[in-house]
Design a protein around this nucleic acid. Sequence first.
RNA 1: GCCCGAGUGGCGGAAUUGGUAGACGCGUCGGUCUCAAAAACCGAUGAGGAAACUCGUGCCGGUUCGAUUCCGGCCUCGGGUACCA
Length: 928
Amino acid sequence: MEYKHSEIEKKWQKYWAENKTFKTEIDNNKKKYYVLDMFPYPSGAGLHVGHPLGYIASDIYARFMRHKGFNVLHPMGYDAFGLPAEQYAIQTGTHPAITTEKNIKRYREQLDKIGFSFDWDREVVTSDPKYYKWTQWVFIQLFNSYYCNQANSARPIDELVEVFSLQGTKDLDLACTEPMSFTADEWNSKSEAEQQEILMNYRLAYLAETWVNWCPALGTVLANDEVINGLSERGGFPVERKKMQQWILRITAYAQRLLDGLNTVDWSESLKEMQRNWIGRSEGATVFFGIENHPDMKLEIFTTRPDTLWGSTFMVLAPEHDYVDIITKPENKAQVEEYVTYAKNRSERERMTEVKTVSGVFTGAYGINPLTNEKVPIWIADYVLSGYGTGAIMAVPGHDSRDFAFARHFGLPVLQVVCAPGDEPKDTSTWEESYDSKDGVIINSGFITGMNVKEAISTVVKKLEEMNVGKGKINYRLRDAIFSRQRYWGEPFPIYYKDGIPYAMDEKDLPLELPEVDKFLPTESGEPPLARAKNWTYKGYPLEVNTMPGFAGSSAYYLRYMDSKNNNELVSKEAASYWVNVDLYLGGDEHASGHLIYSRVWDKFLFDIGVAITEEPYQKLINQGKIQGRSNFVYRINGTNKYVSLNLKNDYDTSALHVDINIVKNDELDIEAFKKQSPENASAEFILEDGKYICGWEIEKMSKSKFNVQNPDDLVEKYGADTLRLYEMFLGPLESHKPWDTNGIEGVFRFLKKLWRLYHDRDNNFILSDEEPTAEELKVLHKTINKVETDIKNFSFNTAVASFMIAVNELSELKCNKRKILDELTVLISPYAPHIAEELWQLSGHDTTVEYAAYPVFDAKYVHEDSFEYPVSFNGKVRFKINLPLTLSQDEVEKIVLATPEAQKWTEGKEVKKFIFVPKRIINIAVV
RNA sequence: GCCCGAGUGGCGGAAUUGGUAGACGCGUCGGUCUCAAAAACCGAUGAGGAAACUCGUGCCGGUUCGAUUCCGGCCUCGGGUACCA
């Protein structure tokens, strides 16, 4: 009568491993399906129950699709480069490779216990030279490429060299750092060093001096997505702006394609929106203003509202703008310098928190509006950012809230040039806010007066272009990605310096392995740790001492899984053509502006150079919710060693203390276990309610210090992997964030015991009846099959678990232990609880015939007792039995079924809305 | 501020295109078995009411024979983002 989960689970895990049950090969007779999890960073803390949530869901889907006859690729690996192992190395001297290997081993043990159907033969580890050889290879390709805006594709840099030597920059539209223009003759007369410097302006991986996010505490620079509110994402340390020479990826070249691609993928609307915001496309125009007393200079500004040119009453430069020194009048110099110094010394964080403070200073200079020839004062203010647009704006206080606040603060004039539809122009001195809306009619604006805003914008842009004082322009918020880290534990750059000029290593010399160093710290002169390595040279030239950032190794790993053992190519044409891209990708939404952007850029680049087959790497993406911690508290009466139960604590003066959730069950404290925890606890006294000590609880982040970390191994040991799998799914919708709470796990465990008992007698002998199931029993089965399949397809894994429970309850009530029911039930449940399913399947023997049952759905009227009618859909009572290949989709099955004489006879004269198909015997579980 | 998302019993959460709100599980209460406990099983469990019945899906209003679902206006809580011109 006993369900021995640990015996069963060990047996099947061993069987799967020994038989390589889940090993996947290219099979052109089967349709492919690629299920991928975001691979984990193997941290020293091991897995907690939050990690497997997504893995369980993807495993269920992978197993389900295998049953459906697909050739499923479901790999796993490790994102193994990262800060924690390096910081541990700095503290202890242990090489990060050793720490990483140890952690990976632990992760693997933990993962294996949960019974995942990963093809471990395809495992990748980003810190393995065999793997990062290809990360370095991609970097070389990026270095050797430029982006042609006309072709909208990356191209080999050699091609550009040839073009330059023939026509210079004439007729070219290239993604670049700074616009350049030169003739073929000029190019040809330049030295090697000069030419290389120019090429750097166009390479997709380039070296440049820029403002970076420098984190002194971590001793490295960070990418924009690694900085949150002015603090480092990892560790929460302050981040400063600093000008440094860094490797950068020209991801902005792909901005538009990143945006367009979002329309072709099946991602959640919120995630797509996050990416759209991060890319931040805005359409507008650049306009050249004249500068009084500087006839040879033009001040370029960017605006999204060229229609408001007549309403511009002043201009603003960012404090870092190059023109500040040049145009400032001598009498304003002192004030301007003071302001620039003030602005420079404000940290990013201060600047962010003091957004509402208006500050600025007048330069004494005037700009000249190219359309109106009006003179407008030029100010300096830090609400204009040097990094966006041109670092200079024309201020239109009447129609921009920030300009409005500035104008009011400094008493600058406000003009109205747009009028709300159906409204009369109003005296701007009475305005309390600007009219920012684009819905309106232009007034007081020369030749565009009377037009609507949209019309006016295009008319002005046309005019600006005619007059050669501006042009239409699209700006993106997206910035190029800083790609250097001053760290040891990352991929070395395959770059060496000859006379200070960077060159890519020969591909055949890859991988460039990480060198040994005596310490994992920067050198005394502040150079990155790799500068400590002896003989860190290539062909006698010094090698790059920075390493690549965390996102390097994770940007193309999905391609590598397709062909992970291939030592000659990142991925073979054959493998890439068969597997194409990821059909289902599961992971957290914290990667929206990092990994999921970089990875898409790499894929597009690899597509451009003919390695990847599609432009989008991840077709469908699901963000599983984070599992939060649920802490338990005990209440100690202040100044005593007495603890009072939750509902009585208001009668006392108490302090809440975290208590280890592992000694609390359903919020009831295990007093004996508590006493054993420490000598102090041993003498504790308790004030109980109803003979129990009830703990309080709160939702917090899962962390060791809060004693609320739930380790999956303990649960697997106690309840088994099948219970854990079912319970994690049962917890709630996959995508919502939810606290971990073991309060309900017993219910799921009970369900599995019940399932086991359905086919076992009191002495734990397997019992099975060969009788034909009754109509009632079949109804239970088919209802469940239908519901569970629909749920899995909708990724509604929690409701599917409920259906299993209902089915087993009903079958228990019917005392049904029929073979036919068991066979199908086992297959159905196996994605969720594979171990028990395998065991029951084996005990019962199997049958692999495939048969579809088709239920026509038609409209009918339901007559309510209150005598009104409403339409409903009913499942038809007639059903078809047709033997068809498993690989067919529902649509294909429908087509075939509808063509049969049987179906035509039945559907005659009836309005059949759709058919529901239930594949009966699905497939042998283990041996795929 | 802006952009998303969500508010349903004591708790986690269910409810095809509007159609018996609260599936399933936890907890609680009662019972069976037992010397007893554990395990297991059975029953009850949104609120009020003896009952018939009434009220109930954040709040207010609307559409409808009928609204958790659709529309308008608010409130609250999450998440993202932030002087992007």
